[in-house]
Design a protein around this nucleic acid. Structure first.
Lengths: 189, 189
DNA sequence: TTTATTTCTTAATCAGGATTAACTTTTTAT
DNA sequence: ATAAAAAGTTAATCCTGATTAAGAAATAAA
């Protein structure tokens, strides 16, 4: 059940068997069906979600009433609106399953409780946040370093498997352009 | 000397006086002059820098040989290339003083050492990384939610004091457009 | 299996911002 | 104080990617 989560944690810190079973006992996996939501805009974000199976997306609705995806959550990734989770203010984001998925929801109290019981978890979260922030810094670098067409070509060569799991309009949204433009650059060459 | 740093840490966690003086003793502030560098592209990033006075910028050189600023570091902010610092691979970034500044450099070993001695620091770093990551998520949202002109107008109304501390070409770079375009939108109204 | 709904494609026109270049103003160095 | 360098302005032209619209193809539902 929790193998994906526990393996992930153990890549960063060591856990005793007792600690591992405490985590398994405090947190229950949730399955969600394609198109179901974990978070809706206007609601306060309740948890940080570890994706143990499937695929999620995080997006907001822009002024043109279009969905703008800012993040995907694959197996082994964490996904949440940290701003809303931290401040307990309403979110502007949606978190939705792109495929049937399984997540392990860590809400604030459970996280605090488990960190107190298992100090290694504090180190774990510090380290994954550092990686997430580094990835986010690279993402911003990327946005400014390449044109839309270049970002699409880099993405397809770097993640050929992933682009087959999502509709093209979601990739276009994530890369910040229109589905029409994606069709156009796919057509030429 | 370390008052800005210690006050910052104490906004997130409690420190005893002994812990505070251990920090002061292990870390010495460095002053750097305007235009001096803390990091050069091609070099491995050695430390995470806490800015206790002045202003720094983090930028890379894009394919058009132009400086692309991705981050500023004001008093009370942390600035580093986490990717390079974490992986110990050469950075693609420069960190340079925009004004005369004072920083407190935390290199990897000192950070690990101080976290072991002062467990509260682990919590501190987890919390500031969470905030930094949340800010980075908002930044990406922002880039996709607004046009260049809108981002300039929002920025000027939200940070009127800050824009007076930096040359316009740096603001244009940070916002991802050319100085000519900035002149143009400033001219109209 | 047929219909309905989503997703993808193509093409014409349009707009936001880049590029180039010449010039002006401000700041820095001597 | 003067020269040199850095920063900012203006305007013409160009280009990347948006918009609009209509149709085709693929998926899902009945």
């Amino acid at each position: 059940m929790h193998t994906v989560l526990l393996e992930h944690i153990r890549k960063y810190v060591t856990l005793t068997d007792d600690e591992a079973s405490l985590i398994s006992q405090k947190l229950k996996p949730t399955t969600i069906k394609k198109k179901e939501f974990l978070l809706l805009a206007g609601k306060v974000c309740k948890a940080n979600y570890f994706v143990s199976r499937g695929l999620l997306r995080l997006y907001f609705i822009n002024k043109k009433e279009q969905e703008q995806i800012t993040q995907f959550g694959l197996e082994g990734w964490w996904i949440t609106d940290y701003d809303s989770l931290d401040t307990q203010k309403p979110s502007r984001f949606y978190i939705q399953a792109v495929e049937d998925a399984e997540v392990i929801a860590w809400n604030k109290d459970v996280q605090e409780e488990l960190i107190l019981a298992i100090p290694q978890l504090e180190t774990y979260f510090r380290k994954i946040l550092q990686r997430a922030y580094a990835a986010s810094q690279r993402r911003i670098e990327y946005i400014y370093a390449y044109s839309d067409e270049e970002r699409y070509r880099n993405f397809s060569t770097n993640f050929p498997g992933f682009i087959q799991r999502i509709p093209q309009y979601m990739l276009a949204s994530y890369l910040g352009f229109t589905p029409q433009f994606l069709s156009k650059i796919r057509a030429k060459k």
